[in-house]
Simulated scan of single mutants.
Amino acid sequence: MVEPGPTTPTSPATPTDPATPTNPTNPTPAPVASPVATNGKLQVVGNQIQNQNGVAVQLKGMSLFWSQWGGAFYNASVVNSLADNWKVTVVRAAMGVEEGGYLTNPAAEKARVKTVVDAAIAKGIYVIIDWHDHNATQHTAQAKAFFTEMAQLYKNTPNVIFEIFNEPDYESWNEVRAYAVEIIGAIRGVGAPNLVVVGTPTWSQGVDAAASNPITQYPNVAYTLHFYAGTHGQWLRDRADAALSKGIALFVTEFGTCDASGNGNLKLDETGRWIDFMNSRKLSWANWSLHDKPETASALVPGASTTGNWPDSALTPSGAFIKQKLLQ
């Protein structure tokens, strides 16, 4: 739900460490004992996301910041540090679409995403390719072309999850659903069975609307639930439970420890209640955000290293709390 706000002190950078080229026909096997080697292809069954053995799986990790402003963190060293030192099992590449993002510089933003994706593949963790947009129904053609290309690249790679609409704001579920059916159709049309996550109305809090009229044309679809602990409380957990009871699977691809603005009202006690809720229901989650913007939701203090291996002194209160939860 966080708007990008003013330009952050970290200037975006084109990735300098080249990604390993992806071979869509014969992807690199996941490292032994890595999350992907253990769990393999993800599949929605009922209201659960299950692994290759039919066991409910819960991924936990971090979301990167909007790529056009947080691009300096879109590198393999950051992914490796998160996997090795924070024990994340998923990382989210939040590719900004508007405001100088993909619509303006498609090659640069795509390169950043692929760098993160290929680093995650090499590390054996899951990765979300996120169309980070509040107005995706206005950019259907561009989204369709982008996800068709990504699906062709990564259709044989179980690590990759497609998040096709980050946060619808004022669109109805009928509008979002129609968009999603078209984009998922393009993904499935090139033979990609990957898990797809679909945003829900009102900044991805409207999971009740999705549960009342889920997408039935295609398999392996989950729905987005976002919360910010300083703004969203028990009422949204109740709504999530009601949606789960109707049989849809949820994925918390983004949440914050503070107000929905991303700044102020740090609520670690309420965040803890949310994390207990997600853990008890096996809801996968990614915290917003792995970035050094001077705001409460950032995990890193301003000026923190853009190449990882952060000391405790480089973590904000939010970052220290989330890292501790990831290591539990």
Results as ranks from 00 to 15, higher is better:
171 E>N: 12
171 E>M: 09
174 N>S: 15
176 V>S: 11
177 R>H: 15
178 A>N: 14
179 Y>E: 07
182 E>G: 09
182 E>N: 11
183 I>Y: 06
183 I>Q: 05
184 I>D: 13
185 G>P: 06
185 G>V: 04
185 G>D: 00
186 A>F: 07
186 A>Q: 05
187 I>A: 01
190 V>W: 11
190 V>D: 11
190 V>N: 10
192 A>H: 05
194 N>Y: 11
194 N>W: 11
195 L>S: 03
195 L>C: 02
196 V>G: 08
201 P>Q: 01
201 P>R: 04
202 T>S: 14
203 W>F: 09
204 S>L: 07
206 G>V: 05
208 D>N: 11
211 A>N: 03
211 A>T: 00
216 T>D: 10
216 T>M: 13
217 Q>A: 13
218 Y>W: 14
219 P>Y: 14
220 N>K: 09
221 V>S: 09
222 A>R: 11
224 T>I: 11
224 T>K: 10
225 L>N: 08
226 H>Y: 14
227 F>W: 13
229 A>F: 12
229 A>Y: 13
230 G>M: 05
231 T>G: 12
232 H>F: 12
232 H>A: 10
234 Q>E: 12
234 Q>N: 12
235 W>P: 01
236 L>W: 05
237 R>C: 07
237 R>I: 11
237 R>M: 15
238 D>Q: 08
238 D>G: 02
239 R>I: 14
239 R>N: 15
240 A>Q: 00
241 D>T: 15
241 D>V: 14
242 A>D: 13
242 A>P: 00
242 A>F: 04
243 A>F: 08
244 L>P: 00
245 S>F: 01
246 K>E: 06
246 K>D: 02
247 G>K: 02
247 G>C: 06
247 G>A: 01
248 I>L: 01
250 L>D: 05
252 V>E: 09
252 V>K: 04
252 V>C: 14
255 F>V: 00
255 F>G: 06
256 G>T: 09
258 C>D: 12
259 D>S: 14
260 A>E: 05
261 S>L: 07
264 G>A: 01
266 L>N: 04
267 K>D: 15
268 L>F: 02
271 T>S: 15
271 T>P: 02
274 W>F: 10
275 I>H: 02
276 D>R: 10
276 D>V: 10
277 F>L: 07
278 M>T: 09
